Computed example of a mutant assay.
Amino acid sequence: MSEQPVTAPPAPEPPATEPLVTEPPAPAPPVTEPPAPAPYGAATVWAVPPYLAPAPPSPRDRAWVRTALRWTTAAVVCAAVCVGTAVAVTAPRRTDLPGLRTPADGRYAFPRLTLPALPPKALTPSQGADATGDSDHAADLRKLLLPAPLGARTVKGFLPDPTGWYPAASYIKDMGGKPELTSEFSAFGLRHIAARAWVAADGTRTTVYLLQFRADVDAGTVFDGDSASTRPAGVTGLVEDGSIVFPGLVTGVRTEALARPAGHGGQAVRVGYVKVGEVEAVIVMSSSKAVPLVNFKQVVGLQGELLQG
């Protein structure tokens, strides 16, 4: 028997495997150029970087703002109330406020008192007495007369002469026609007299005479004689009243008041004499009842202050 050739069996084929699937690579992001920087200005250069800026306050942090606003509003309201109260208190006169009203004492209401303008470099009697010892008046004496109070009636028959001065003869007649006054005026150099008279609403008549002499010493001599002996016509029995003082008159101004109490028949009269520099003031007040002391002190004091300047 012939031998068959021995052949090797075929090698087994490798097992089939699935092909590997790989994902395609992601496309690269497009390349963009950075934005151009904004142009620099003052605000940009000095601006705070965003990462350094303070965070906005939370609602809880704003509580102090509300508290401050409440206190500010309260302070403004309080100030407005205080200002309104001050205006309400100071605008009316003190005597018009409830609880502060005082009873009227019968004092006269005068218009606003003003001093006349002086010539250049001239001094008032008070200034001159302090600076040079000369207390003469540089102002027109007629402008230093005390005006009539409000509501008073000016005495029509009491008028100055055409020159604007009250005649010396009329004054001598008003003072009882004493012949000594004529020689006295001549000897001591009476220059002129300014005068005014009125009747107040209470019936009190007031006459103010301002006698101007050539010098202080002359007026002083006449003043000494007048305060001792010169009386208004028809008036007798006057007695000196040393209790009356005039605190508004400066030291060195001599004042003297004489009065006759009411009830002795006729007119009640008060007479005051004031000397300032080369001027003597004679104030006569009369009434059928009584001359109120408050009015007498008021008139004499104000006239003396006008003369003092």
Score class of each variant (00 low, 15 high):
residue 1 M to R: 07
residue 5 P to V: 12
residue 6 V to G: 10
residue 9 P to S: 08
residue 10 P to R: 10
residue 11 A to R: 06
residue 16 A to R: 04
residue 19 P to I: 11
residue 24 P to W: 01
residue 25 P to R: 07
residue 25 P to E: 14
residue 32 T to R: 14
residue 34 P to F: 06
residue 36 A to E: 14
residue 38 A to V: 06
residue 39 P to A: 13
residue 39 P to E: 15
residue 43 A to F: 00
residue 43 A to P: 01
residue 48 V to S: 04
residue 50 P to Y: 00
residue 52 L to V: 03
residue 57 P to C: 07
residue 59 P to N: 10
residue 61 D to F: 00
residue 62 R to A: 05
residue 64 W to G: 12
residue 65 V to K: 09
residue 67 T to V: 02
residue 70 R to G: 11
residue 70 R to I: 14
residue 70 R to N: 00
residue 71 W to M: 08
residue 77 V to M: 06
residue 85 T to V: 11
residue 88 A to D: 05
residue 89 V to S: 01
residue 89 V to L: 14
residue 94 R to T: 14
residue 96 D to T: 13
residue 97 L to Y: 07
residue 101 R to A: 15
residue 101 R to T: 15
residue 102 T to I: 08
residue 113 L to D: 05
residue 114 T to S: 09
residue 116 P to S: 11
residue 118 L to H: 06
residue 118 L to R: 11
residue 122 A to N: 08
residue 125 P to F: 04
residue 127 Q to H: 00
residue 136 D to G: 14
residue 136 D to N: 13
residue 138 A to M: 06
residue 141 L to W: 02
residue 143 K to A: 15
residue 143 K to D: 15
residue 144 L to R: 08
residue 146 L to Y: 06
residue 149 P to I: 03
residue 156 K to D: 13
residue 158 F to G: 04
residue 160 P to R: 00
residue 162 P to M: 02
residue 163 T to W: 02
residue 165 W to R: 11
residue 169 A to Q: 06
residue 169 A to K: 05
residue 171 Y to A: 12
residue 172 I to D: 07
residue 172 I to A: 12
residue 173 K to T: 12
residue 174 D to Q: 11
residue 179 P to H: 09
residue 182 T to M: 02
residue 187 A to Q: 14
residue 197 A to R: 08
residue 199 V to A: 03
residue 200 A to E: 09
residue 205 R to Y: 00
residue 207 T to S: 12
residue 208 V to Y: 01
residue 210 L to I: 03
residue 211 L to A: 12
residue 213 F to L: 13
residue 218 D to H: 07
residue 219 A to H: 04
residue 220 G to M: 09
residue 221 T to M: 00
residue 222 V to M: 13
residue 222 V to G: 04
residue 230 T to V: 15
residue 231 R to A: 12
residue 232 P to W: 09
residue 246 F to D: 07
residue 249 L to Y: 01
residue 251 T to P: 08
residue 253 V to I: 13
residue 254 R to F: 05
residue 257 A to V: 15
residue 259 A to F: 10
residue 259 A to T: 10
residue 267 Q to M: 09
residue 273 Y to E: 05
residue 277 G to M: 10
residue 277 G to K: 02
residue 280 E to V: 15
residue 292 P to E: 03
residue 292 P to Y: 02
residue 293 L to S: 13
residue 301 G to Y: 01
residue 303 Q to R: 00
residue 303 Q to N: 00
residue 305 E to V: 12
residue 307 L to P: 03
residue 308 Q to D: 07
